[in-house]
Design a protein around this nucleic acid. Structure first.
Length: 281
DNA sequence: TCCCAGGACTACT
DNA sequence: AGTAGTCCTGGG
């Protein structure tokens, strides 16, 4: 068990549950078990500290600090956003302490391909099915968990195998992505180095990845904060509170208003509308 | 039974 | 270039 002193505002509950990640499990004591790339952690907040334990505690402090992005200065980003859009002030202040989780790229890609026209519980269910079938088992606090498999481990998994994991019509998209990775047509690390627009284009060359999914991948796995994923929630908010309709108009507004922190602004609007229940009717 | 959910693809004008 | 219809699945 380790303790990490929180030197900046951080809300564990909001950060975990605001829709960035799907494979977390709330415990009876209100802590969370979360499955990371290579281990399972249990985490809770206590007196200004983040208390973390894991089945593998090597480098745990560094890994968790990086995962929750604890050292980043979100107040700076909020100031930037609010200065350009006073309307977002409530949402931004409400969301102070909400950070962008730095997720594993491969799992994020698979996650958001599955997310297309799908519900949150079903997305989680499908991911857990895939992990249970093809991932490494981890026993932690007498509970069984499964790490999400690597693309190498998914080599040879067929479309119908994926469909058996309840991914539906996205089966062929997942298989295609796994094939492309195993054949070297896509290299996960390349998206860190590409410009955002080039990375979007390259991701969208894969079947099953459109603008929204590609944007989410770049935001949640590659820390490209200048994307603006437009989903049904964002469309509602933009229409009701900003009077803006149409994807092109929304994208232009976001780019011109929030610029390099568009993705952060989206997350704040989303978090506020779902948790504060004040923006969307 | 129908409709929808944190979209994308395909097949049409 | 822009737009309907279609797509697994589980739940209301």
């Amino acid at each position: 068990m380790i303790k990490i002193k929180l030197t900046k505002p951080f809300k564990l509950n909001d950060t975990v549950t605001c829709g960035q990640i799907f494979r977390f499990f709330r415990q009876e004591d209100e802590s969370y078990d979360i499955i990371l790339k290579d281990r399972v952690i249990n985490v809770y907040e206590e007196n200004g500290y983040l208390v973390v334990s894991s089945n593998d505690e090597t480098n745990l402090k560094e890994i968790v600090t990086n995962y929750f992005d604890l050292d980043n200065d979100y107040q700076k980003m909020i100031d930037f956003i609010v200065e350009r859009d006073s309307k977002i002030k409530c949402a931004a202040n409400f969301s102070l302490g909400l950070t962008m989780i730095r997720q594993d790229p491969f799992e994020t890609i698979m996650e958001y391909i599955i997310s297309a026209n799908n519900g949150v519980p079903q997305i989680a269910n499908a991911l857990n099915n895939i992990a249970r079938k093809y991932g490494q088992k981890v026993v932690f606090n007498n509970k069984e968990y499964y790490l999400f498999p690597t693309y190498q481990a998914l080599k040879g998994v067929s479309e119908s195998d994926f469909r058996n994991c309840k991914v539906g019509f996205r089966d062929k998209y997942l298989k295609n992505m796994v094939d492309n990775l195993n054949e070297g047509k896509i290299v996960l690390d390349e998206f860190y180095h590409l410009s955002t627009s080039d990375a979007l284009i390259k991701l969208m060359q894969n079947v099953g990845i459109g603008p929204k999914v590609a944007s989410c991948i770049l935001l949640f796995a590659y820390q490209k904060y200048d994307v603006f994923p437009i989903d049904t929630w964002v469309k509602k908010i933009m229409k009701n509170d900003y009077g803006i309709e149409g994807e092109k108009n929304i994208r232009n507004f976001a780019m011109n208003t929030y610029g390099k922190y568009s993705g952060i602004a989206m997350q704040y609007l989303f978090n506020y509308s779902r948790n504060a229940k004040l923006v969307v009717n």
